[in-house]
């Protein structure tokens, strides 16, 4: 058996989390609260060492120039507004950084979505048909084309549907379910791998009973 304290702590916490598979219990609850506590601690440390010290503190006390210091102070103050709800009368001020965050994300996403997703994926669908050199490639391209079309029709929410659109939409559902099946299969690989990793840790690193 391992003589390292860290291995023992990790092994006991792993078993405590596994105990949830039997039923909810006090040991699991302890492990759950340890995770929440450690997670919060890590978050505070990360904020301190990756944002507050290098960006805010150094940005103000040792700036590249006056302009960069001014920007740092301005955006730090905007960030501080997130804490406005602690003073009920000033709670509305938190909406300013919230609005900036949402606007920034939306502005950043739209051109990227057009450039990196809409155009290349439309092009890929078109090229699939245009460049198909073999019977198999033609079938492949047609499957992609029918799948793309029918799923787009399925997600049309405000279009009144007749029999034809309903039929196309139902084909879209079939494609969605096939896609979900593929995701599910991959997820099984993922989950099994994590479990195998844990078992290797418990029986290998902790108990030393696995062949090397």
């Amino acid at each position: 058996m391992s003589t390292e304290l860290s291995v023992w702590v990790a092994a006991i916490l792993s078993l405590a989390m596994f105990s949830f598979l039997y039923r909810e219990n006090a040991v699991y609850r302890v492990a759950e609260h340890v995770m929440v506590g450690v997670g919060t601690g890590v978050t505070v440390l990360l904020a301190l060492y990756f944002v507050l010290i290098p960006v805010v503190w150094k940005g103000i006390t040792a700036p590249k120039d006056a302009t960069s210091a001014a920007w740092t102070i301005l955006f730090t103050l905007l960030g501080v507004l997130f804490m406005a709800p602690f003073v009920p009368r000033l709670g509305w001020l938190a909406r300013i950084p919230c609005g900036i965050a949402i606007g920034y994300a939306a502005g950043q996403t739209l051109p990227a979505a057009i450039q990196a997703r809409l155009f290349p994926q439309a092009l890929s669908t078109i090229q699939g048909v245009g460049d198909a050199g073999s019977a198999w490639a033609v079938i492949n391209a047609l499957v992609v084309l029918v799948g793309t079309t029918s799923v787009l029709v399925y997600f049309m929410m405000t279009v009144r549907r007749g029999a034809a659109l309903n039929a196309v939409s139902r084909v879209g559902v079939v494609f969605l379910m096939l896609g979900f099946g593929a995701v599910y299969g991959n997820m099984v690989i993922s989950r099994f791998t994590i479990l195998i990793g844990r078992l290797q840790f418990l029986f290998g690193e902790w108990f030393h009973i696995l062949p090397t």
Partner: peptide
């Protein structure tokens, strides 16, 4: 988007590569 894909396929069959250029191909 559906119209764009349909137009692209028609142009591909007709041997016109203009839309490819527009979409970055």
């Amino acid at each position: 988007v559906l119209a764009l894909v349909a137009l692209g396929i028609v142009l591909e069959i007709a041997g016109v590569g203009w839309l490819r250029t527009v979409l970055g191909g």
